[in-house]
């Protein structure tokens, strides 16, 4: 009898130990994420794509290459394009596997590119995509520079804030973020505006960490390239769910989808 008790207790202790260890390990990861905040995504991209990733900075300056095993939004974009053009008929999952590899080779052979199954700058250009992560050395004022990291960050905010809204409503949310950057009462960087405590519910509840869909990315790009359907608004709210009294004192300019936009 004592034996049974002993075995049972050892068994439970081991289970208990592994359970706590497992949970601990998991939360530990969360903690690190918390520190790296908005860099997280771009870091991932740089790590997976650069061939011999030395550090983030250099990797982002080198032309990006996607190969078997790459993961991330860029792979999704490639898969999406290939799917649209009928070269690829599997799930757009952001993982560069065998099917993606075959589809890329097929696409390359059809388009007179070197058939190597690797998406480099040329193949990406033929697909109408840009993989390069250009760094903006001159600040936000260097006109027309590709700001991929900013675009993904805005797209993530848009995705978290306005899923289910019409396209113009998504661009409007992105435009509000950019209008805030320009306004004196708000932080002067895109990350500053998005991560301002309490500013966006999608940031507070973590939805901003979801990877953005194609439409959000497109909306972010359209907004960064100048389209502002809100005519300069800095606030928006959903009248059905808004709880803050203060927000009702804002001046409404336009109503798009479920959101009201104002100043």
């Amino acid at each position: 009898m004592k034996k049974i008790v002993l075995i049972a207790s050892i068994f439970f202790l081991t289970v208990a130990f592994f359970v706590t260890y497992y949970i601990h390990a998991n939360t530990q990861v969360d903690k690190e994420d918390w520190f790296s905040d908005n860099r997280e995504e771009s870091l991932d991209e740089a790590e997976t794509s650069a061939v011999d990733s030395i550090n983030y900075y250099e990797a982002s300056l080198a032309p990006k290459v996607l190969t078997w095993g790459s993961r991330g939004q860029d792979v999704k974009n490639v898969q999406w394009k290939l799917l649209q053009w009928g070269y690829f008929n599997s799930a757009v999952d952001g993982i560069y596997g065998e099917r993606t590899y075959r589809a890329v080779r097929w696409f390359q052979s059809k388009n007179g590119l070197t058939v190597d199954g690797v998406v480099g700058p040329k193949t990406a250009a033929a697909l109408g995509l840009s993989l390069g992560v250009a760094r903006d050395a001159g600040g936000a004022k260097t006109a027309g520079v590709s700001r991929n990291e900013d675009i993904t960050l805005i797209a993530r905010a848009v995705h978290g804030e306005s899923r289910g809204e019409p396209y113009i409503g998504k661009v409007a949310v992105a435009a509000v973020i950019l209008n805030r950057v320009e306004h004196p009462s708000f932080p002067n960087t895109i990350a500053g505006v998005i991560y301002q405590p309490g500013a966006f519910t999608a940031v507070s509840d973590g939805q901003i960490n979801l990877s953005p869909d194609n439409e959000s990315l497109k909306a972010a790009r359209d907004a960064i390239n100048g389209w502002d359907p809100t005519y300069g608004c800095r606030y928006y709210w959903n009248p059905a769910t808004a709880t803050s009294k203060w927000i009702w004192s804002r001046e409404v300019v336009i109503k798009i989808g479920k959101h009201w936009f104002g100043n």
């Binding site: 250009a134 760094r135 004022k141 260097t142 520079v145 590709s146």
Partner: peptide
Amino acid sequence: LKIIKNENG
């Protein structure tokens, strides 16, 4: 102004 090269721009 510094121009950042990008294959699309």
